[in-house]
C-alpha cells in the first residue's frame, strides 16, 4: 500500500483503461464536450491565423501581398517564392550546419542536463540548495550583457568561427536542468531505494530507473532544446564570421533588408524552416503522454 501512497504516478490505470475520457478524473458529458470543442476550435483559429497568413503569403506575388483592401487568398498562386529561397540561398549547406548545430547541442545537452538534474533532485549532498540556486541564478542575467565578454573569451580560445565555439557554450542549460529537476523530484523513490539496497551504482539508477520513468519530460525538453537552437539566430551570427558556417535562420535573415522586406521569400523560407520542428514535435508528441504506462513497471 505504501507504494500507492508515496508514488501515485505508478498506477495500474494504463492507456487501456476504458474510463479515461475524463476531465480531472471524471467522465465528460456530451454537452460539456461540445462546449470544450467550441472553445478549443475558436482558440485554435485565433492562434493559427498568423500561420495561415504566413502560408498564404508565401504563395503570393508581391502585388497581392501589399494591397488594399487586404487580400486573404492570392489572386494568382505561385511557387516562385519557394524557388527563390532555393536558388538564392546555399540551402544544403545551411540545413547541414543547422542540423549539426542543433542536434549535437540537443542530444548532448539532454544528457548533461539530466545528469545534473538527477544529482539535484535525487542525491543528498551538502550544498545542494546553494548549487541549485546558483544554477537558477545563471538564468537571471540577461545574455545581452555576457555576450561581449564571452566573445572576447572565445576569441582568446581561438574558437571564433568554429563549430566548438558555436556548440560547447550551449551544451548545458540552466533551463533544462531546472525543468528536469522539477520532474525528477516528483518521481517515486521506492524503486531507486530498492536498487540502492541491491547495490546498484548511481549511474545505473539514473540510466535504468529515473530516465525511463521520465519520458514526457525528456521528450518535452528535446523539443524545447531543438526548437530553441534551430531557431536561434543571434548567437550563430555573433560567433561565426563566414557564410559557410551559417545556419538556416541566419540565411532567412538575408531576405530582410534595412529598407525593404522580401515578404514572399521570407514567408516561404520561414515555412520551410519550421517543417523539421513540426516533424520533431509530432514525433515527440507520443512521448508527452506516454508517461509511466509505457515503462512496464507494475506493482
Amino acid at each position: 500500500m505504501s507504494v500507492q501512497v508515496t508514488s501515485g504516478a505508478v498506477s495500474p490505470a494504463g492507456k487501456q483503461n476504458p474510463k479515461r475520457k475524463r476531465f480531472m478524473g471524471s467522465r465528460i458529458s456530451p454537452p460539456v464536450q461540445l462546449l470544450l470543442y467550441l472553445l478549443l476550435v475558436s482558440v485554435a483559429v485565433v492562434v493559427g491565423m498568423p500561420f495561415l497568413i504566413m502560408l498564404l503569403t508565401s504563395f503570393k506575388f508581391p502585388t497581392d501581398i501589399i494591397s488594399y483592401p487586404p487580400r486573404f487568398l492570392p489572386t494568382q498562386w505561385t511557387v516562385t517564392n519557394y524557388q527563390l529561397v532555393w536558388t538564392q540561398l546555399p540551402f544544403a549547406m545551411l540545413v547541414r550546419n543547422s542540423l549539426v548545430y542543433s542536434f549535437s547541442i540537443t542530444l548532448i545537452s539532454l544528457f548533461f542536463d539530466s545528469m545534473c538534474a538527477y544529482a539535484l533532485a535525487r542525491l543528498n549532498f551538502r550544498g545542494r540548495n546553494v548549487v541549485f540556486l546558483a544554477i537558477l541564478a545563471t538564468m537571471m542575467v540577461p545574455v545581452q550583457v555576457t555576450l561581449v565578454p564571452l566573445f572576447f573569451n572565445l576569441f582568446e580560445l581561438g574558437w571564433i568561427n568554429t563549430f566548438q565555439g558555436l556548440i560547447v557554450p550551449r551544451l548545458t542549460s540552466a533551463f533544462g536542468i531546472f525543468l528536469l529537476r522539477q520532474f525528477f523530484i516528483s518521481l517515486p523513490r521506492d524503486f531507486e531505494d530498492a536498487a540502492r539496497i541491491d547495490g546498484a551504482s548511481e549511474f545505473r539508477i539514473y540510466w535504468q530507473i529515473v530516465l525511463p520513468l521520465s519520458g514526457p519530460a525528456i521528450a518535452t525538453l528535446f523539443v524545447f532544446h531543438f526548437m530553441y537552437n534551430w531557431n536561434d539566430f543571434l548567437w550563430p551570427l555573433i560567433v561565426t564570421t563566414t557564410a559557410n558556417m551559417r545556419t538556416l535562420p541566419t540565411g532567412l535573415a538575408l531576405f530582410m533588408g534595412e529598407h525593404n522586406i522580401e515578404y514572399g521569400t521570407l514567408m516561404a523560407g520561414a515555412t520551410i524552416a519550421a517543417l523539421p520542428l513540426i516533424i520533431a514535435f509530432l514525433f515527440a508528441q507520443r512521448y508527452f503522454v506516454a508517461g509511466i504506462a509505457l515503462t512496464g513497471i507494475k506493482e
Binding site: 532555393w86 536558388t87 546555399p90 540551402f91 544544403a92 540545413v95 547541414r96 542540423l99 542536434f103 542530444l107 521528450a219 528535446f222 517543417l275 523539421p276 516533424i279 520533431a280 514525433f283 515527440a284 512521448y287
Partner: peptide, 21 residues
C-alpha cells in the same frame, strides 16, 4: 528510435536540397 527517425527525415530533406542548387 525517435531521434534517429527525425534525423533520417531531416537528412533526406537536406540531401534533396543539396541536389537542387
Amino acid at each position: 528510435l525517435l531521434f534517429s527517425l527525425v534525423l533520417v527525415v531531416m537528412l533526406l530533406l537536406s540531401a534533396c536540397a543539396g541536389a537542387a542548387p
